[in-house]
Write a protein that binds this DNA or RNA. Sequence first.
DNA 1: CTGAATGCAAAAGCTTTGCACTAGG
DNA 2: CCTAGTGCAAAGCTTTTGCATTCAG
Lengths: 148, 148
Amino acid sequence: MQLLDTPKSRTTKQRGLILEELRRVDTHPTADEIFGLVRRKMPRISLGTVYRNLEVLAEQGLVLRLDGGGGQRRFDARTEDHYHVRCLGCGRVADLPSLSIEIPEREAAAGTDFQVVGFGLEFLGICPECQAAAAALAADDTPEGVKE
Amino acid sequence: MQLLDTPKSRTTKQRGLILEELRRVDTHPTADEIFGLVRRKMPRISLGTVYRNLEVLAEQGLVLRLDGGGGQRRFDARTEDHYHVRCLGCGRVADLPSLSIEIPEREAAAGTDFQVVGFGLEFLGICPECQAAAAALAADDTPEGVKE
DNA sequence: CTGAATGCAAAAGCTTTGCACTAGG
DNA sequence: CCTAGTGCAAAGCTTTTGCATTCAG
């Protein structure tokens, strides 16, 4: 069952061109860089349009957003080695009890001309509050007797 | 050998209090939330001071910045499964050939009340350009005959 | 036709910075 | 003393949004 129904999306020249240009490069450009690329072929496109389309394309799974969990910067005074879970709903972060995880840095380094110095890993999830909120919302939206 | 010499830092009331408050909580607060906490005990502190001190404390290794790779958002039209390296110098991102990595999501989920739905992993490194820049800089700063 | 999408510009975060003043060592 | 650090306010950057207009289906 589909909870949120996505509004039907249109195939505009702007969206097509953005995807095409993004596929042409392997530089993982920022929105602004994409704006620059696309503008060469469509000078009147606006940065807002680029942002809106990247968002749509990401929802459709046609592009990946690399923002590593993103959102606002958070701070932790616990400096011993441990991992975090970040809530996809509200951005809250919690500690995880220490896990021993093997990350093949050597192998990664072998596949690139970057000098690999480490890695960033965080788990993604839904915090209890956001789980409850989602459940309440689902209940509201579910007409009488409908099962999922 | 120490390349950049850090200017000697002072122990101000503000810096001490920020660290103290951050140690008191386990919520991984944002700069603004820390500002709120600290302001209860030192009402005239400014948000700028909080940012500056968090930066210093992070450099000293007393606090961790959780910004998941951070910087500007980047996009990728390659949607098949692969990992990335991000340059710590300039933020540039490159693809890595596919690696099979085992992330113990189950174990992580067992240690939290968050509903774990996945993880974010990226490698960190220095891109060739930034390696060159760093080497050039080191050469400049190295007086005649000095070896590292 | 209808409303999704656009261009433009303004607004909204979050973070950094310039400057004159304060205070740590 | 000397200069790192502070408070305040302004600026900076990236991303989002409101609105009248355009255009895809």
